[in-house]
């Protein structure tokens, strides 16, 4: 088990003929992920060389899912087309098999396009959206695993720690920290740094709580919004497994967007110290420094009798 994505999941790539699509699909194949093909409107019937294998391209998601029985799709299309790509994928998964996971890597999608896309995805019960503006999701396997996104595969190993994060490179830090105490990962989910996204912290925490492979969770937040505070409240009431955390942006000034479109303290709300206080109050041990995540996690595992 893992969450949402099994290690042998069948994966489609939307925008597979673009630079980003081909590059990252090739990396996924190198990692051992089961990329079954891709979609680029107008390029149906072609094939794409992904190094170790060649995969077919379709014009539309419905045809691609019918042909491959894909479990998931990953979107590398440019921002102005990404909202429509999400909606197309959601409808296609719903029509063909009723379930599917859509992972949107694209950064820079207009917020109102995401308002429309997330409303559409929410109206379809079996379909999940991860991202946008995220590194993706990875379930490391015994050999390889399902790497759906842009994360460096080689830093991961199969294990029992679930990771959920708003940030890309900080997720990699968290992965490295679990490895430093000889722990691997069940699934790592980048939920993305945009103000409006699909899957949130609570979705991930709730799935990790139910997942028998996951023993503990690392949760990485950052300034902006109140998702961390809401997640903390949820953890206090519902989570039996240990959760440790880190929140980036203690020194961020108010009113300034810190790289991610959603990382902004506005009207005095969304500060890192409020988030850490809410998380600590919910029993989530927080590291002051990403280099301490391993030590904090180890302590939590020991206290829970897991080490």
């Amino acid at each position: 088990m893992a969450i949402w994505i099994e290690e042998d999941a069948k994966i489609l790539v939307q925008g597979i003929t673009g630079n980003q699509g081909t590059f990252h699909a090739t990396k996924s194949v190198e990692f051992g992920s089961n990329i079954v093909g891709g979609v680029t409107p107008g390029k149906g019937g072609q094939t794409v060389d992904l190094g170790q294998k060649e995969v077919p391209v379709w014009d539309k998601m419905t045809v691609a899912i019918e042909a491959t029985d894909a479990d998931a799709s990953v979107i590398y299309v440019p921002p102005r087309f990404a909202g429509a790509a999400i909606i197309e994928a959601a409808d296609a998964f719903n029509d063909v098999k009723g379930t599917g996971v859509i992972v949107c890597i694209t950064e820079g999608i207009p917020t109102l396009d995401m308002v429309k896309a997330t409303a559409h995805v929410r109206s379809i019960e079996g379909v999940r959206l991860i991202g946008p503006n995220c590194p993706g999701i990875i379930t490391p396997g015994d050999t390889g695993g399902a790497k759906i996104g842009i994360m460096p595969g080689h830093i991961h190993a199969k294990g029992r720690i679930g990771i959920v994060s708003k940030s890309g490179t900080l997720t990699y830090e968290a992965v490295a920290q679990t490895m430093s105490i000889d722990e691997g990962q069940s699934t790592c989910v980048g939920i993305g740094g945009d103000p409006v996204n699909g899957t949130g912290f609570i979705d991930c925490l709730s799935a990790f709580e139910k997942d028998p492979q996951t023993a503990a969770v690392v949760m990485i937040g950052e300034i902006g919004g109140s998702a961390e505070e809401e997640a903390a409240e949820w953890v206090a009431e519902n989570m039996s497994k240990p959760v440790v955390g880190f929140v980036a942006g203690m020194t961020a000034p108010p009113g300034k967007r810190m790289g991610h479109a959603g990382a902004i303290i506005s009207g005095g709300k969304g500060t890192a110290s409020e988030k850490v206080a809410a998380m600590e109050a919910a029993g989530i041990r927080c590291a002051n420094d990403p280099s301490e995540i391993g030590a904090v996690l180890l302590k939590s595992l020991k206290d829970a009798g897991l080490r």
Partner: peptide, 25 residues
């Protein structure tokens, strides 16, 4: 000088933690 927005913020935070003051994100 950092890659990634979250890591860039964390870098500023850790500089502060060790008694320094970041000049930029």
């Amino acid at each position: 000088l950092v890659n990634g927005a979250g890591l860039a913020m964390a870098t500023m935070d850790v500089i502060k933690l060790y008694g320094g003051e970041p000049a930029n994100f």
